[in-house]
Write a protein that binds this DNA or RNA. Structure first.
Lengths: 67, 67
DNA sequence: AAAATAAGTATAATATACTTGACATAATGA
DNA sequence: TCATTATGTCAAGTATATTATACTTATTTT
């Protein structure tokens, strides 16, 4: 899994810290950190919550093209 | 969580059974069954695999508007 | 009609998403 | 420079996604 730079950018666009986003969607700061680092595999429910908080869609933040 | 009828329809469109789809994405048949029933919360990796198998995007199959 | 095949359901076990708490480092500002 | 804030990382625990097995109820097909 690659880094999720789209998420990082969308968060920056809203001027939110990892902690802010974590609080907004109800998970821990580490969870957001690891998602951005691409080290794992969140649930669709969490992805939806992140998208709604950041005003993006699933395709915009969580779709990836493979090599 | 509501039933995922969009998934059911996309699967029907490809003439695949729940078992076929499960085998194609590498999970058990019950997992597909429960996702369609809306009884849980798959991981984004699994959602992506399902989308690619069925030729749909995340937004098409896994976005939901809330009440 | 029966015999397949597909879908739905349940339970117990395993894998892994996610937490808590803590510490280290990079960046920002006073 | 010092203090503060944001990010990155680790280990150990908890919650839950997913599995294996098995049984039941539709739905097709012969």
């Amino acid at each position: 899994m690659a880094k999720n730079l789209k998420l990082k950018a969308a968060r920056a666009e809203k001027d939110m810290t990892q902690g802010d986003l974590a609080a907004a969607v109800g998970v821990s700061r580490q969870t957001i950190n690891m998602i951005e680092k691409g080290e794992y595999n969140p649930t669709i429910r969490l992805c939806r919550a992140i998208c709604k908080t950041l005003g993006k869609t699933l395709d915009e933040l969580f779709w990836e093209e493979e090599p």
